[in-house]
Each structure stands twice: as structure tokens, then as C-alpha cells.
Design a protein around this nucleic acid. Structure first.
Lengths: 140, 140
DNA sequence: GTAACTGCAAAATATTTGCATCCTT
DNA sequence: AAGGATGCAAATATTTTGCAGTTAC
């Protein structure tokens, strides 16, 4: 893990720093997507808020993570797949937001349905956000 | 128009006030979704910011409008269809965000593809956000 | 007349920017 | 050593809350 995240940072030509490693590890360890607040909590207020802002922004620019649309004004981020190059996201899997526990899951194994756009429209990315109740909360 | 928006407000048991009428008209006149900032601009700073916040919140609660997930931290709202009751949204059409002009369209005539969820997951709503270039910007 | 709505002020939160210091390379 | 990254402080921006005055019904 330790080595893996360093590799990713190097590949993106970023200096390997403590905060970047930690934050990247959070994403690898998390089953779902993370918001700024989640990272603050996970890090135990170890990092400055500003550092988190800047780190997330850098990761997005480098194509390491991407932002997920949400309806509640809290941007969430998730790891990009390998085929996300800098500035080019092919993030065509589905996101599931649990109304009960608030967790955002990335459903990698669910294929995205094709969408038929009206004449004249061209698409570069499709996001699908399904809200509902997740497995854990349904069992409880 | 004037009469129509008043009707909608009455139906939702809301007092018919100036700001509510104006804001509701904006939604009816707009082809796309509106963010808080759009409404401020459209109203020419006529209303207090707070009034806009509260009006939008009230409209969402009453099922008149709904919020659309966006990746850029700016909540956008759009009119609900008739079958949106209070607290119950069946907003299963597709939203298209133009990367060029930033407009959000509601593509009513595009059907939403069914999504096959993993075992244990239940869904209450599906949002599809397609990003790309809209008809107008493609033509330009 | 009463309940509900608005506007103002202010508090609470969230985000951005500048700069000095520290760390990575 | 040099460039980049971080942390602190402060400037902005955003959202929420309380309350007094006004308006709709």
C-alpha cells in the first residue's frame, strides 16, 4: 500500500509527501467515495483544511480522482480507473448513494446503459447516480 | 403564466407572494435548470439572498422543484413533473450539462435505462447526468 | 386579526489567496 | 540548492438563524 500510493504519485509527477500519501490511502481503503469532510475526519484533523483542498484539487487535475455529482452540495471524490488520463475521464460506472447511511458506493460491475441523445447533442461523459438503500442498511 | 404559477402555489398550500411568483416564473421560462446564483441574476438583485434560499427550499419540500446532482458544488434546481408529490420524487428523466455554455437541460423525451443493481440494494431514484456539448454550442 | 412570509443583521460555515517556512528531489 | 508543498492568517463567499416588520388570506 505504502509503496503503491507512492508509485501513483510519482507517475503523476507529484512530490511524494505525507499528506498526499495519507489521503490517497484513504481512497484506496474506502469502499465508497469521500467528501472533503470525510477526509478531515479520517485524518483526525492532522492536516490543514487548506492542504486537503489543494490536495484534492491536484488529484483531480492529475486524473487520480474525480468528482461525483451529488444533489446535496457536498462534492464527493472517488478514484479514477486506470484509463483516466490527465484531463480525460472515462468514468462510466455507476454511483450509488445510500439514503440511510449516506455512503456512496462505486458499482464497478454494473454496466452503464447507453443513452440516446437528441440530434445535435454530443456526450463526453455519463454519470449515473442511483439513490436508495444499500445492502448493509437493508439487512439491518 | 401569471395565473398558472399562482395556481401551482395555491395547490401546494403556499401563500402567493411576489417573490414566489417571480421565481417560479423563472423556472417556467427557462429551458434548463437554475442555480441559486442564476435566480439572483435573473431577479436583478431584487430579492434578498435569504428569501431565495428559503423559497427554493420551500419549493423542494413541496415537490415543485427538485435538485439536480452536479459535480461542481453548485446545486441546480428544475421543475418537477406532475407526478412528484410532496416528499416523493419520480424524476426519472435525464439531465444534460453542456461543458461549453454550462446550461443544464432536462431531456424529457429520453427514457432512462434500467439499472441492474447488485443483490441487497434497492433504489428509490435514478439520476443520469450526461455531460457534453449541446446543440447550440455544436452549431456555433 | 392571525399566520405566514420577507428583509435585515449577524452568526456560522465553507472556500480561496498570500506568504513565510519546510520538505522533496 | 531550487522548486514545490504545507501551514497559518486573513480575505471572500456561502449558508443558516433570529427577529421585527410586512403581507396574504
Amino acid at each position: 500500500m505504502e509503496a503503491a500510493v507512492s508509485e501513483i504519485l510519482k507517475r503523476s509527477q507529484l512530490s511524494v509527501t505525507d499528506s498526499r500519501k495519507r489521503i490517497l490511502e484513504f481512497f484506496h481503503q474506502s469502499s465508497g467515495a469521500l467528501a472533503h469532510a470525510d477526509i478531515e475526519r479520517l485524518s483526525g484533523e492532522q492536516f490543514d483544511r487548506v492542504t486537503i483542498y489543494r490536495t484534492l484539487q491536484t488529484f483531480v487535475e492529475k486524473g487520480i480522482i474525480h468528482s461525483i455529482p451529488t444533489a446535496d452540495n457536498s462534492i464527493r471524490y472517488a478514484l479514477c480507473k486506470d484509463d483516466c488520463a490527465e484531463g480525460h475521464h472515462h468514468d462510466n460506472h455507476i454511483h450509488f448513494v445510500c439514503d440511510k447511511c449516506g455512503t456512496t458506493f462505486c458499482l464497478d460491475h454494473v454496466s452503464i446503459p447507453a443513452v440516446q441523445l437528441p440530434m445535435g447533442f454530443t456526450s463526453s461523459q455519463t454519470d449515473v447516480i442511483v439513490s436508495g438503500v444499500c445492502k448493509q442498511c437493508n439487512a439491518a
